[in-house]
Every structure is written in C-alpha cells, then in structure tokens.
Amino acid sequence: MIIYATSAELQEWIGEATLPPKAASFLRSASLMVRTETMTAVYATDPEGMPTDPKVSAAFRDATCAQVAAWDGMGIDPSSAGVPSAAPVRSKKLGSGGVEYDTSVNSSVTAFQAKKEAANNLCAESWMILQQAGLMPGGVQRG
C-alpha cells in the first residue's frame, strides 16, 4: 500500500509537538482515500506507484496530511467509520455511583451522520489541494 506522507510530515503539517493517536493508521487510511479519489488522474509514477513530479507528490502528501488533520480536529477515527459506539459521558458521580450519557445535539443522529460522512469523504481542504494540482475531475491539464 502506498502511503503519501510520513509521521514527520504530518507533524510539520499540524504544527504540534505530538502526533494524533493512531497517526500511522490515519495516514494509511487518508492515503487510501486520496488514491481512490484520484484514480482517474494522469501523472507519472515510479515502479512503486509514487508520483515522480515533485508538485504532484507534494499535492498527494499535503492532501493526506490535511485529511488526517481534519479527522483529528473532528475527533473522527476512520477505522470506526466515524461513528462512536456509544454516546459520550456527560457527567459522573462518585458517591452512590452513576453515569449520565450526553444525548444532546453532539450525540444526535445528525451528528453521527456528519461524522460518518467526514470519515468516508475527503475534507474540503484535501479536495482543493488535489483539484488545484489538476488531479481531480475537471482539473487543469498542463502540457
């Protein structure tokens, strides 16, 4: 499997000292999504399938990092299709026990659907990076 960005490149992209949990898994998932979305794009590759043009390679890297940053910022794990298995805990009690789950708008069906969509589709920034590099449908062909 081709992975378009390294952990170091992701760390530089997000500008933070620590990487998101599961960064390697997120980079793999984002690379797969970027590759799928650019399946019909025409560009030169090396024998492993990596783009050889530095501008195209940078677009793949940047789109991959932007996708991981979006998932991390929205609290989405693409391996779970973006849907948490349970509502988040709103409050806890120590004496006499008790846990209360958050069923507000953040845990609503609409929020779950939005997270599912975000887990399964390129974020706007990734799409624009690829589109401006001429790798998305309707992109500019040079040469």
Score class of each variant (00 low, 15 high):
residue 29 S to A: 15
residue 30 A to K: 13
residue 31 S to V: 08
residue 32 L to S: 15
residue 33 M to N: 01
residue 33 M to T: 08
residue 35 R to T: 15
residue 35 R to L: 15
residue 36 T to A: 11
residue 36 T to S: 13
residue 36 T to C: 06
residue 37 E to H: 03
residue 37 E to D: 11
residue 38 T to A: 00
residue 39 M to R: 11
residue 40 T to L: 09
residue 42 V to D: 13
residue 42 V to K: 11
residue 42 V to S: 08
residue 42 V to F: 04
residue 43 Y to P: 15
residue 43 Y to W: 14
residue 45 T to I: 12
residue 45 T to G: 01
residue 45 T to W: 01
residue 46 D to I: 11
residue 47 P to W: 12
residue 47 P to T: 12
residue 48 E to Y: 13
residue 48 E to K: 15
residue 48 E to V: 14
residue 48 E to P: 00
residue 48 E to D: 10
residue 49 G to K: 06
residue 49 G to Q: 10
residue 50 M to L: 10
residue 50 M to G: 04
residue 50 M to W: 10
residue 50 M to D: 13
residue 50 M to P: 10
residue 51 P to K: 06
residue 52 T to R: 14
residue 53 D to N: 13
residue 53 D to K: 13
residue 54 P to H: 06
residue 54 P to S: 08
residue 55 K to G: 12
residue 56 V to A: 02
residue 56 V to P: 01
residue 57 S to E: 04
residue 57 S to R: 12
residue 57 S to I: 02
residue 57 S to G: 03
residue 57 S to C: 02
residue 57 S to A: 14
residue 59 A to I: 08
residue 60 F to A: 00
residue 61 R to L: 03
residue 61 R to F: 01
residue 62 D to E: 03
residue 63 A to C: 08
residue 63 A to Q: 09
residue 65 C to G: 07
residue 65 C to S: 03
residue 65 C to H: 13
